[in-house]
Design a binder for these strands. Structure first.
Lengths: 128, 128
DNA sequence: TATTGTTATACTCTATAACTATA
DNA sequence: TATAGTTATAGAGTATAACAATA
């Protein structure tokens, strides 16, 4: 988080904003409720995030013609680009930090993180 | 953190309370300012923590006779015991989680964490 | 004047409940 | 009645500034 935050700020993104963009890029999401579910957030928590992303024309929110209670969410071209370039910078930064480690240690470290994140999701379900 | 918090709560300790107890046990601390410095917290942030620990007779706060602006801090017997038993439970829990890993991965993981925590303290100095 | 401990204030983040509009 | 999105409110956690006592 401490390594990522400065990069996110450089793109004018918050952690939640970045999570929303990657979720819209990587998973099929219908309305805001399903988005909240996918990223493990509260419905009310992402509204200000979506307002901001929409104002900056990184996402589009429009009523679902099949159910006008719901908002269809999609990335704009600018939103997709912001997501991709930010992620590329973050991964590059991660790599530059991790490349100081012995290759075997690095591989084991990432393997263990994967293991532990599985444990974690099993024990602690997302809010709502 | 997620693994530790339930254990801390079982002992009526917050994260900051636990950090304060271990700091008082493990390092020479004169007044509250030096304690705040040791644990990387703001002076104002630990006051409520100390109030609580003192009310529950886990620490003693008394004016320093050599400089009456300052409070000398020390653990009570109960405070030392709470610190030791809580830490033992936390380490036991850590071990039970980590023992599911291959021994070589586990060793590499802990080694990398040590490395990264050094990086982190170099880049991000404690507040105040 | 500077420092120790303290209090007050504001600002952020989050959770909960209540509201509206649709179904 | 139930659900999607929204708004309002309250509660933590934190940072900053101002204060009294002492040096």
């Amino acid at each position: 988080m401490r390594a990522e935050l400065p990069l996110l700020e450089a793109h004018g993104l918050t952690m939640w904003g970045y999570i929303v963009l990657t979720a819209l890029r990587d998973s099929e999401v219908r309305g805001q409720a399903s988005l909240a579910d996918v990223i493990g957030a509260d419905r009310t928590r992402i509204i200000a995030v979506l307002d901001d992303l929409q104002n900056r024309e990184l996402i589009i929110r429009r009523p679902d013609p099949d159910d006008r209670r719901s908002n269809l969410l999609s990335l704009t071209a600018a939103g997709r680009k912001a997501c991709n370039t930010t992620q590329a910078e973050i991964q590059e930064n991660d790599n530059s930090i991790l490349k100081t480690l012995p290759p075997a240690d690095r591989a084991a470290f990432l393997r263990v993180l994967d293991q532990l994140s599985l444990l974690d999701s099993a024990a602690f379900k997302p809010t709502r």
